[in-house]
Design a protein around this nucleic acid. Structure first.
Lengths: 101, 101
DNA sequence: TTCTGTAGTCATATTTTTTAGACTAATTGA
DNA sequence: TCAATTAGTCTAAAAAATATGACTACAGAA
């Protein structure tokens, strides 16, 4: 995943990014509201720190999530959908439409 | 992949199906024309029998491809997009639109 | 009847992904 | 000052995906 070999299929990179065990669900949760690490760990039943950390980092690296330090009450970190991330929402909707048929 | 545990995310099953190393490309090739096993093996540089066989079976099981024995010249087998498979094309198009931005 | 092309299966190895659990480090509340 | 909450990292193990190479089975051509 680090060394980019030529992607035969144009969609493959995105599909791979979105296809980990936890990433689709993380993305969908991010549509609702900004995410926090420990909250995710609680919400994703069965997930572990490492996997969540890696998923968040990859979604951020791909530009779908923005990471932001919130200097408030309990100083913490929020992951929110970027503009690019938001523009992916319609694709998910169409995916869901497909599944409903 | 055999034992269906509750999919937290509705899109997860489809994303997982489409996210193998070869499946996206196989799907896209199937959009062009029906596929044959050995032809695929030649076209997918670096792929091996086993992976291709598994990919075809899973795409078929999911209902995206129809398998058909062609009783002609060299008796052979064709994998063609099913109606369900065809209805997935627009989703791929939207995915590509997203990637072009 | 042996050789080629068709489409695979099977057992095993290698690689990649995911998990488990110990550990770090800064901030906050008591 | 001590404990909890925050957000992680790190190493090692387990599980899942993928690859390798031998083998099967059928049909048609030489």
């Amino acid at each position: 995943m680090t060394t980019e070999k030529e992607n035969e299929c144009p969609a493959q990179g995105l599909l791979k990014l979105l296809s980990g065990k936890w990433k689709p669900e993380i993305f969908l949760l991010a549509v609702e509201k900004p995410l926090r690490f420990n909250g995710l760990l609680r919400d994703l039943k069965g997930a572990n720190k490492q996997s969540v950390a890696v998923a968040l980092r990859e979604l951020e690296d791909f530009g779908l999530l923005d990471k932001k330090v919130i200097k408030l009450k309990p100083l913490h970190i929020e992951y929110a959908l970027s503009e690019k991330g938001k523009s992916l929402i319609p694709v998910f909707r169409q995916l869901e439409l497909f599944l409903e048929k």
